[in-house]
Every structure is written in C-alpha cells, then in structure tokens.
C-alpha cells in the first residue's frame, strides 16, 4: 500500500513536471521584470516606474520594477538582467552613468549588447549660492581664473555625469575649481545650502525646488540652448564661452534596455508600447514638472547616443587615471 502511494505520488509529480515545461507563447503572456540598476526613489527609478506603468496598460501584463543595485556603474543589475533569457520578459532600467561599467571592470560586455529605449533627461546647469558675488558665468570664470583651485565646486562622485560636466566646463574655459565630490546630487546641493561649496553642477530637475525658493542662483545652462525656467530665462553657456561646444553637451539619458539578441517581433511590440506610453498624459505631465526633455528614442538613434556617451565617459575616466581598464580593450572608439 505504502509503495503504491509512493509510486502514484512520483507519477503525479512527473506528469506535473512535464506539464509545467515552458512552451512557446504570444508576447507578452506573463509579467515582465524591469531590473533597475539604481536605488528606489531616484530619477531613473521614478521615470522607469512611470513609463512601465503606462506601458503595462498597453501590454496588458504587469511590469515589475526591481531595484538591483551595487557593483560599479550598476554592474550587478546589468549582469542580472543580461543573465536572463533574451525573450523580452527582462528589461534593464539604466541611465547614462551605466556606460562606464565596462572600463570600471564592472560589466565586460559594455553597451553594445543592449538595445536602448531613451525616456529623456534633465539638462545640467551651473549654479552658485545666492550670497556669493557671482552674477553671471563670466564673473565666476574670471574669478576662478584669478584664483585657480580656490573656488569650491560640488558635484556627485568622480566619474558621474555632473562631474564630467564640471570637467568639461573647466577644460572649455581653461579654469580649475576645487572639486568636492558628494555621494549624490542631493548631497552636493545640501552642501551648497550649508555653505560648504559655492558652485553646484546638477540637473534642472534636481535644483528646481532650490531655484524656485531663491536658495541657488542659476548662472548658465551647459546645453546649447537657453532654458525657460518658469519665466526666468537661464542663458546657455555656449554663447559666452564658445570653447565649450568642443566638450559639451553631455546630457543625462534615462531609460531602459533590452538584450540586443532578443527576437525582433518582441522588440517591435515593446517599441510600440513605449511610443504610446511616451505620448500619454501622465508621462508628459511628469516631463513638464521634472523639467525633462522627453525624447522617446528607440533603435539606432538611442543606441548611437549611448555609444557616444560610452566613448566620452570611458576615455575621460581613462585620461583621469580613474578607469580600471583601457577603453580600447573593449573596442570603444575615442
């Protein structure tokens, strides 16, 4: 009797196993996972959560956002997402900072194995504390020329987008600041509040509340165009300092990626859903409120942007001596 029980148990289980074997299906027929390489609550996280929620409406399945942080430049999350089958059920939530993953010894495949979806980003600007004497970028630059390394400038950690913008500003104008690194953009802005640094480079979105309250004084955009911030026009730095166009713009790019070897029809489904999501009201409203330039780019256009960023970031870090591996060993063009 006991033997019979055991035997029938095994039979049932084996039947169930055969039954549960994965079968071919129409995409998407189950939940999609977005493995987000940065922490919960950050800019990349928020934009992804919003767009995913809108895409979920189109695709009629849930899209779960899981924050898998750690490593360098989000490498742990990149590996996690890359290790999953290329079936479109796994996406990687990324931003421009991921492009250094290869040269930092994090993610050896680099950016060439992904197809990107770019949601957009908020442009960077130079601001100073309101009690400082600098009214325009010119004044700040000439003061910095007179006093090399004398003015403290805060930005997020070495190798971040804001740090690279600061470096570009230094190179393009031929001055040097005393760079004080912070663990986040918010950290550098807090430091400006407490008077620890005078100059801050972060994005419009990150500064918006402080700008509104007059706790920071905007000097210039680090992009080619002027920026209309709630009626106040922040001038582009390119006009007064043409030398900058050689190094800038370096813009924040928030979005997500799918493995390049995923089936084309799956990518097409995701592209369509993404385009519709980018046109939805909540996303547009979010873009307005966050001072985002919504891009909604996919395919080659998006990939070209990331390839270019990878090249600029990797070589800049290499020249600074802060990259672990030579970019040329990954075939990253200069």
């Amino acid at each position: 009797m006991k033997k019979f029980y055991a035997l029938s148990m095994i039979l049932i289980v084996v039947a169930a196993l055969a039954f549960a074997a994965p079968t071919a299906e129409v995409f998407p027929s189950r939940d999609i996972n977005n493995i987000l390489v940065w922490g919960a609550g950050g800019g990349t996280d928020l934009a992804n959560r919003l767009v995913m929620a809108e895409m979920a409406k189109q695709l009629k399945v849930n899209i779960n956002v899981n924050n898998v942080t750690g490593g360098v430049s989000g490498s742990v999350g990149l590996y996690e997402a890359y290790g999953k089958p290329a079936d479109g059920y796994t996406l990687a939530g990324v931003s421009e900072s991921c492009v250094t993953a290869a040269v930092q010894g994090g993610f050896s495949h680099g950016m060439k194995v992904w197809d990107f979806f770019i949601i957009g980003g908020s442009p960077d600007l130079v601001s100073v504390t309101p009690n400082s004497p600098y009214r325009t970028l010119d004044e700040l630059i000439s003061a910095a020329k007179a006093n090399p390394k004398g003015i403290r400038a805060g930005a997020s950690a070495a190798g971040s987008i804001h740090h690279l913008n600061l470096l570009a500003l230094e190179k393009g104008t031929g001055v040097s600041f005393n760079f004080i690194p912070y663990d986040s953009s918010a950290g550098s802005q807090n430091a400006a509040m407490t008077g620890e640094v005078t100059v801050v480079i972060t994005s419009v979105q990150e500064q918006s509340e402080l700008l509104k309250a007059g706790k920071l004084r905007p000097l210039a955009m680090l992009t080619p165009d002027d920026f209309d911030f709630r009626g106040t026009v922040i001038p582009s730095s390119f006009k007064t300092h043409p030398g900058l166009s050689q190094y800038l713009p370096l813009e924040q790019q928030i979005g997500f990626a799918i493995r390049k070897d995923a089936p084309e029809n799956v990518k097409q489904v995701l592209w369509d859903a993404f385009k519709v999501a980018m046109q939805s009201d909540p996303v547009k409203k979010y873009g307005d409120e966050m001072y985002f330039q919504l891009k909604g780019l996919v395919g080659k256009e998006a990939n070209d942007i990331f390839d270019n960023l990878e090249s600029v970031f990797s070589w800049t870090l290499w020249d600074l001596g802060a990259a672990k591996l030579n970019p040329s060993s990954f075939g990253i063009p200069r």
Binding site: K149, A158, G159, H163, L167, N178, F179, P181, L317, L320, G321, A322
Partner: peptide
C-alpha cells in the same frame, strides 16, 4: 597600498 598622495579620479 591605496593612493595616498597622487591625484586620483580628478581629485587632488
């Protein structure tokens, strides 16, 4: 063995 004096990653 860590960088004690040299410039590293743009920080003097």
């Amino acid at each position: 063995q860590m960088p004690l004096k040299d410039t590293y990653a743009g920080v003097v």
